[in-house]
Simulated assay, not measured.
Amino acid sequence: MLVVTPTVQLTCKLALNSFASVSVNGLSHITSALENVQQTGLLTLANHISTLDDPMAWGVLPTKYFLRSHTARWTLGASDIMFTNPLFSTFFRSGQVLETVRGNGIYQPSVDAAIEKLNRGNWVHLFCEGKVNQPDTYLQENGLTRLPRFKWGVGRVLTEVSKLPPIIPIWLSGFERLMPEGRPFPYKYLPRPGQHLSVTFGEPLDLRELEALRASDATPEQLRIRITSIVHDAVEALGHSVSGPLLTRTP
């Protein structure tokens, strides 16, 4: 981690400054949380629109956060994409990615580890859709574009963590144009330069509703469902505030 994470993040910062333009909003929300992360932990949640969302989006952070082990994010990564050979496995583990097996449900080591990391005062980031969903595939209901549903892993994390951490929603725009899905080899591995990107950090969620739910007599399954719905709606609402009801406006 001492080499991989800073190197990757500094490369992403250089790349963002070299071949894309980036709008950053609400940066103070996450930097304030990172200054206190060892005492509180931190959970961030974002829409997932390209294979470059992580780590590219973190290139907007001030450099000092790349160089501190306690302010480097942990995240979950798909076993069938990131851990397909010994070289990839070593690289991604060194980059603080927790191997996650799709289809193995919410009771698996990576989710256990995410809970442990939060309990120990680390930053954990989740793409709760569980896969890349580009905006042109989103469904519409009554003139409102809906963010795809979240997997229940986040509900388990927030049900079982010892104390709720600050939770910051994030909305990403433009990354789907930087790295579109569905292109043939070798173009699918090549970013498209000249794109305008946007990273918006929302205000930390008001935790009172989640705390009340955790203190209720709801079953674990009921808690997971309700908590997942709350955080999904927070990320979706941030998206609508940034990109409009159809999630198409470029900030």
Rank of each mutant, 00 (worst) to 15 (best):
A78D: 05
L210N: 12
A237C: 09
L144A: 08
S50D: 07
E221S: 12
G155E: 00
L67Q: 15
P165W: 08
L98N: 15
L61W: 06
T248C: 12
M1W: 11
T63W: 14
S94I: 00
P169F: 05
R249M: 05
I81T: 15
Y107I: 10
Y65D: 09
H125M: 10
D80P: 13
M1P: 12
R183Y: 10
F66G: 04
N47A: 09
T250N: 15
N47S: 04
N119P: 00
S241A: 14
S21K: 11
W171L: 02
M1H: 08
Y189A: 06
A237T: 15
T228W: 06
T145L: 08
M179P: 05
V242G: 00
T84F: 13
P55H: 04
A33C: 09
V22M: 02
A237I: 02
T100R: 01
T90I: 07
L238N: 04
F91W: 11
S229R: 14
D136N: 04
T145H: 11
P62D: 11
L190D: 02
A114E: 02
W152I: 01
S21H: 08
T100G: 09
L43S: 09
L52C: 01
K131N: 01
S243N: 01
S173C: 14
I225Q: 08
H240K: 10
L223C: 07
E141I: 13
E160M: 09
I30L: 03
T84W: 11
T137E: 10
L61M: 13
F92I: 13
L247E: 05
S23W: 00
E99K: 13
R149I: 06
F175M: 02
S110H: 13
E160I: 04
E129H: 03
G130S: 04
L10C: 06
E209C: 07
L147T: 00
H196I: 02
W152V: 03
L144N: 13
A20Q: 12
T5A: 09
G105A: 06
R177M: 08
V132S: 02
R149Q: 06
L76T: 13
L172A: 04
L238P: 05
S110V: 09
L45G: 07
I230L: 14
G174F: 15
G143D: 10
G174W: 10
G143P: 12
V22T: 14
D80W: 14
T63Y: 15
T100E: 00
S241P: 07
K117V: 11
L172K: 02
D80T: 15
S28K: 12
L238M: 13
I30A: 03
C12G: 02
V132L: 00
L158A: 05
L118S: 12
D53A: 00
M56L: 13
L197R: 07
L144M: 05
N104R: 14
H48N: 02
F66P: 14
G59C: 08
V3E: 09
L98K: 12
G77W: 11
D217H: 08
F83C: 06
N119Q: 03
L52N: 05
F127S: 07
V231E: 11
G130E: 11
W123I: 04
V60H: 02
T84P: 15
L207D: 03
R102W: 05
F92G: 01
N122R: 13
L205C: 03
D136R: 01
G153A: 02
T219S: 15
R68Y: 14
G130V: 03
G202Y: 01
Q140S: 13
G239Q: 07
